[in-house]
C-alpha cells in the first residue's frame, strides 16, 4: 500500500530497479547512473519523511504493514508464549499478551493487536478491544507482579470498541480497573505507542512508568475524524483536525507528555521492520535499566508523580495556587 505523498519515492525506486535489470540483461555498466538515482531517492525520502504533516503521520501510523504488537514481541524477545483469556468471559483477540525473554530477562508483554490485512483485522476487530481484553491485560499484569517480571505494553488502537456487548460487559469499568491496576503495579511498566494511541482504550495500557512513542505514532483523545465530526460537524476536515489536535510524537514530547520519541527507519517502521525493532528494543532496554535501579516504593511514587504533574499550574501563564 502506497500513499500519494510516497509516490515520487516509489516511482524513483521502480526506475532504479528497472535500470538494474536492464544493466544485468544487456550486460552494460550503469552503476554511475544507478548510484546517482539512489542518492536522489535517499534525498527525496529525507525531504518527504522529514516534513510529514500530522495527517500524513496519521496515515503512516495506520499503515497496514506497520509492524504490530506480535511482530515486536517476536522480534524483540525470544521464547514468546501467548497466554489467553480473562478468566471471566472470554479471550479478546484485539489485545494479546504473554510471557517472553527480553535480553535475557523474563518479561510480560501485552498490547493491542491490529491485523496486516482485512481478514486479520476482522479477526482482531481492528485492534478495538472489549472489556475482556482489558481484563486479560490486567490479569497478566498482576501475574507479572507476582513473579516480579517487568511489563512491556504496546499501544496500537483506534480506541475501545463502542458496541453493545462491550457496554453490557462494562467497558468503562474494565478500562478504569486497568488504569488503576497499572498505576499500583509493583514492577516496572514501559508503554510504547506503536501506531495509533486512541482515547481511553489506549490510556488503559499507557498508565505506567514510561510512555515512549515511535517517531510516526500518534496519541490522541479521540480520532481526528471524530474530532472533526463533533467539533465542526464535518468528518472530511480530519486533516485540519490532525493539525490542531497536537497528536504527533514530536508535539507530545515537546509538551512533556511522553518520555521519548523512538526513531524509525526512513519512511516508517514498515519499510525496515528489523531496524524498527532494533530501535524500539534499545529504547526499552535503556528505560528498563533505569527503572530496575529503583526501589518498588520509589517506582510507584515516581509513577504517580508523573501523572500528578499534568496539572494547570505546570502550564506557564497560570498562577494557580
Amino acid at each position: 500500500m502506497v500513499y500519494d505523498f510516497e509516490r515520487p519515492i516509489i516511482e524513483l525506486e521502480e526506475k532504479i530497479a528497472e535500470l538494474q535489470r536492464f544493466a544485468r540483461e544487456k550486460d552494460i555498466d550503469l552503476s554511475n547512473e544507478i548510484e546517482n538515482l539512489e542518492k536522489r531517492a535517499r534525498e527525496l525520502k529525507q525531504t518527504i519523511y522529514g516534513q510529514l504533516s500530522p495527517w500524513q503521520k496519521v496515515l503512516i501510523a495506520r499503515h497496514p504493514e506497520r509492524p504490530n504488537t506480535l511482530d515486536y514481541a517476536n522480534m524483540l524477545c525470544t521464547d514468546f508464549i501467548e497466554l489467553h483469556g480473562d478468566r471471566c468471559f472470554g479471550d479478546d483477540p484485539a489485545i494479546v499478551g504473554g510471557i517472553a525473554r527480553f535480553r535475557g530477562r523474563a518479561v510480560t508483554v501485552i498490547g493491542h493487536l491490529k491485523g496486516h490485512d482485512t481478514k486479520e483485522n476482522l479477526a482482531r476487530n481492528f485492534g478495538m478491544a472489549h472489556p475482556e481484553g482489558y481484563r486479560k491485560a490486567l490479569r497478566l499484569m498482576q501475574q507479572a507482579e507476582k513473579f516480579n517480571r517487568p511489563v512491556l505494553a504496546f499501544i496500537d488502537t483506534p480506541g475501545a470498541y463502542p458496541g453493545m456487548g462491550a457496554e453490557e460487559r462494562g467497558q468503562a469499568h474494565a478500562i478504569a480497573c486497568c488504569i488503576a491496576g497499572m498505576l499500583i503495579l509493583r514492577v516496572p511498566v514501559i508503554s510504547v505507542i506503536l501506531g495509533e494511541g486512541g482515547s481511553g482504550g489506549a490510556l488503559a495500557l499507557a498508565s505506567g512508568d514510561r510512555i515512549l512513542m515511535q517517531e510516526h505514532a500518534i496519541f490522541s483523545v479521540i480520532s481526528p475524524e471524530a474530532y472533526a465530526t463533533i467539533l465542526w460537524k464535518d468528518a472530511t476536515r480530519c486533516r485540519d483536525a490532525a493539525e490542531v489536535m497536537k497528536i504527533t510524537a514530536q508535539d507530545l514530547y515537546a509538551h512533556q507528555l511522553v518520555d521519548e520519541v523512538i526513531p524509525e527507519p526512513l519512511g516508517g517502521a514498515h519499510r525496515d521492520k528489523n531496524e524498527a525493532a532494533r530501535l524500539v528494543g534499545e529504547a526499552i532496554a535503556r528505560h528498563l535499566e533505569e527503572l530496575l535501579g529503583c526501589s518498588t516504593e520509589e517506582l510507584i511514587k515516581r509513577r504517580h508523580a508523573r501523572f500528578r504533574r499534568i496539572a494547570p499550574e505546570y502550564l506557564p501563564g497560570n498562577n494557580i495556587t
Binding site: 488503576a180 481511553g200 490510556l203 483523545v221 489536535m245 509538551h255 507528555l257 501523572f307 500528578r308 496539572a311
Partner: peptide, 20 residues
C-alpha cells in the same frame, strides 16, 4: 474527556485514578 485539551484531558484519567 474534553477534546479541546487533547491528550492533557486523557491524562486526567490516570491522574485522578492515581490519587484514588
Amino acid at each position: 474527556a474534553r477534546m479541546q485539551e487533547g491528550v492533557l484531558s486523557l491524562m486526567q484519567m490516570a491522574k485522578t485514578c492515581a490519587a484514588l
